[in-house]
Design a protein around this nucleic acid. Structure first.
Lengths: 112, 112
DNA sequence: TCGACGTTTAGACAATCGTCGAAGTGTTGG
DNA sequence: CCAACACTTCGACGATTGTCTAAACGTCGA
């Protein structure tokens, strides 16, 4: 899983991108589970990147469960994964979170 | 269901309130379903308030399903309900949405 | 008063979800 | 080379969720 499959035709150039309906729903769902949100929080708090096994949840749930959550976070575009030897580095994608926040507040504003 | 049961001890005075962990999770979950989000969007877009039966989804799904979603939106604090005779008026609670956005971006910022 | 209407509740069902253990895939250090 | 390690995939299980129908509730207008 090499983090290179945006399933939504994303430019990812330099400007703030917009979320498709699919990705918007995926982000919302990814944020909905407390454990997954906790994992995302740890990734976001880390400087740069950190491997899966460094997550504090790694000793609360099985490795399979962690892997499942990581995949869902990656599918939604909230994180990216980079293989670094035996490890997988997790990098927070702040642009996706920002795009989600933008669209959320914009689609619920008085005059859309 | 008279919209008067904040289950989280909310002041709702005048200042921007903060979401408890429970309410934060509830909001995230409430936003995660596309249909429910669509309903919320309609409520937010309406001037003031509108009854359940005026929702455009009301002819796509059963009334029971609408009622279920309304209840979940109300539980999360994203809307309030007011009985008006035979009807139930739905009012968007922008302060809750704002509090959610605040906490979301704050808990995922570089230096929490 | 009574029936139509808007909404809610109860109960059921299929689909999805979070979780697990076990087996599989790569990769690295000894 | 091989054993340990970091993950991923597979198949399964229980819990939750979105949806429905049917019945109940509360409120008006005729």
């Amino acid at each position: 899983m090499s983090s290179g499959h945006r399933r939504d035709a994303e430019p990812a150039a330099g400007e703030p991108h917009e979320l498709s309906d699919r990705q918007f729903a995926a982000v919302a769902k990814a944020l909905a589970d407390p454990r997954r949100f906790g994992i995302l929080g740890e990734i976001a708090a880390s400087e740069g990147a950190l491997p899966c096994c460094a997550l504090s949840d790694a000793d609360k749930v099985s490795a399979a469960t962690i892997s499942h959550h990581i995949k869902e976070l990656e599918t939604s575009g909230l994180i990216a994964t980079v293989r670094k030897g035996r490890f997988v580095e997790l990098v927070f994608q702040r642009t996706t979170l920002d795009a989600y926040l933008r669209r959320l507040s914009r689609s619920l504003s008085p005059t859309p």
